[in-house]
Design a protein around this nucleic acid. Structure first.
Lengths: 209, 209
DNA sequence: TAGATTGTTAATCGATTAACAATC
DNA sequence: TAGATTGTTAATCGATTAACAATC
């Protein structure tokens, strides 16, 4: 698999390919050309072929791509064939929403521990997982081989939480706190900055006037 | 204000500038150079100057930028000086989290109506707003001059909801459903595709091994 | 004034699009 | 086989970085 130096632009398009291929599969469509996939995704056919060829030659001249094969291969490329062990920090509104989000466990992400610093919340259960105190997090991560931390706290304290996660052995962080976390370069952080998304919407609304 | 044809890449950096400038302002820092801002944001100083100059010459040679002025100007550029009237559709986990999210009303977004198709949910209150039946949405939007619709439903039905929103006069959609909504080109859609973010994290984790 | 730093033009880099030979 | 469509190279486009004159 020749997947060296794939640009972030390409990587962020992969989930969309995967989504449409999964839809096609559900609808029992067997084959698709880059041209047809272009209509669905709004990427150009040329770009689609370029993107896919970063990972291998999945198509066939004169035919196109086999939907089932390509979907499965993209799933592998995205790492969806494996399961990840995760903890979630911050059992507020957003944390609860993420913990209860089904699409999440469906994609192979298991939330094994939930932590909150608020004693009023600890002890409660979310999806069969009891909310524990922040102090217990480090040991829990080590004992349970946790790979991913999901930060659903306010920005205050988020850096300290990230530090603890990294010290305890987590390699990836899904960060919903509106802050840029500083982590060693071997650690992956994927941000979901709702504020920034909202501000972008605000800007675009104003411009369209 | 010479803000024609500003690229999306630039626009998506603006909220980050705004966030750091707001932090500097809180810490009573009066001035900042592009070089210093570069250290905070991890964008290059050159890029920062280019970006800002899309909207005007906010700096002063030999001095840098006045934090308070620049923060205020960026707020205006992002449209944060105005309030937006919004409705939210889908009072599930995520919908509740968004409805209760404070940073949201703080940024000038008011959720005036919440709608759900589930009769078990309608009638309940979220943040003083009663959840209404889907059928009432169109009229509510027209009567209350709603500008923004926030879609927090599953992908099933999300396109129909978008259609109703647009028909009723909404001009912007904040979309959390994992689908690409088809809307007329004068309508703005800002997507938050949690699935795609998660898949990207999954991919990156696998690569770092 | 001298030093610092902007605003802006020019150079570079990277990503997208176009073209087409290979081939199913 | 003829038609279709890929994989891949070359051309174009756009975004980032570098450089520096203007100027506070």
């Amino acid at each position: 698999m020749k997947n060296k130096n794939v640009s972030m632009a390409v990587i962020r398009r992969l989930p969309k390919y995967y989504r449409y291929l999964s839809e096609l599969l559900e609808n029992d469509i067997k084959r698709i050309s880059s041209k047809e996939l272009s209509k669905l995704t709004d990427f150009t056919a040329s770009q689609i072929r370029q993107d896919l060829n970063n990972f291998g030659g999945f198509g066939q001249q004169g035919y196109g791509y086999n939907v089932e094969d390509l979907q499965r291969e993209l799933g592998k490329i995205l790492g969806l064939d494996k399961t990840y062990r995760a903890v979630l920090i911050g059992a507020g509104n957003l944390g609860q929403a993420i913990a209860n989000y089904r699409g999440f466990s469906d994609s192979g992400f298991e939330i094994l521990g939930i932590f909150d610093k608020n004693p009023k919340v600890t002890g409660k259960k979310l999806r069969d997982v009891e909310v524990k105190a922040m102090e217990d997090m480090g040991d829990f991560i080590k004992e349970n081989d946790i790979e991913i931390g999901i930060i659903c706290t306010p920005k205050e304290g988020s850096q300290e939480i990230a530090d603890t996660l990294v010290e305890s052995g987590v390699t990836g962080i899904w960060n919903f706190a509106p802050a840029d976390l500083k982590v060693p370069e071997n650690i992956t952080v994927e941000d979901v900055h709702l504020n920034e998304s909202l501000f972008t919407l605000s800007y675009l609304l104003k411009e369209k006037k």
